[in-house]
Amino acid sequence: TTVHIGNVTYHFDNPEEAVKWAKEMAEKLGLRIEIHGDTIRVE
């Protein structure tokens, strides 16, 4: 599972961890997340 924040990509072996981490980052940055299969974007 990959999480994209701007130009930076993070890789997670556990999809649930990826979603949890992306949600925390989105809250901190005042952004929202979009999930497309195994790709998560924070925008």
Rank of each mutant, 00 (worst) to 15 (best):
T1V: 14
T1Y: 12
T1P: 05
T2D: 07
T2Y: 08
T2W: 09
T2M: 09
T2S: 08
T2Q: 09
V3H: 01
V3N: 00
V3A: 01
H4R: 11
H4A: 08
I5P: 00
I5D: 01
I5Q: 01
G6H: 10
G6Q: 06
G6C: 07
N7D: 11
N7V: 08
N7H: 11
V8G: 07
T9G: 05
T9Y: 10
T9D: 08
T9A: 13
T9Q: 13
Y10R: 13
Y10K: 11
Y10V: 12
Y10H: 06
H11N: 06
H11W: 14
H11Q: 07
F12T: 00
F12K: 00
F12I: 02
D13V: 09
D13P: 10
N14Q: 06
N14T: 11
N14P: 01
P15D: 06
P15A: 14
P15Y: 15
E16R: 08
E16K: 09
E16W: 10
E16V: 11
E17N: 07
E17R: 05
A18Q: 01
A18N: 00
A18F: 04
A18R: 00
V19P: 00
V19F: 14
V19G: 04
K20C: 10
K20Y: 05
W21M: 03
W21T: 01
A22C: 04
A22V: 04
A22G: 03
A22K: 00
K23G: 05
K23V: 11
E24Q: 12
E24R: 10
E24G: 07
E24L: 11
E24V: 10
M25L: 12
M25W: 08
M25K: 03
M25Y: 08
M25A: 05
A26L: 03
A26R: 02
A26N: 02
E27N: 09
E27Y: 06
E27K: 09
K28A: 11
L29E: 07
L29H: 15
L29Q: 06
L31S: 13
L31M: 15
L31W: 14
R32K: 15
R32T: 15
R32P: 10
I33V: 14
I33G: 02
I33C: 08
E34T: 15
E34L: 12
I35E: 04
I35A: 04
I35N: 04
I35F: 10
H36F: 13
H36A: 10
H36S: 12
G37N: 06
G37S: 05
G37T: 04
G37A: 06
G37V: 04
D38K: 11
T39C: 13
T39A: 08
T39F: 09
T39Y: 10
I40F: 01
I40H: 02
I40A: 02
R41E: 06
R41W: 15
R41C: 11
V42G: 03
V42S: 03
V42L: 15
E43H: 14
E43I: 15
E43Q: 14
E43Y: 13
E43G: 15
E43C: 09
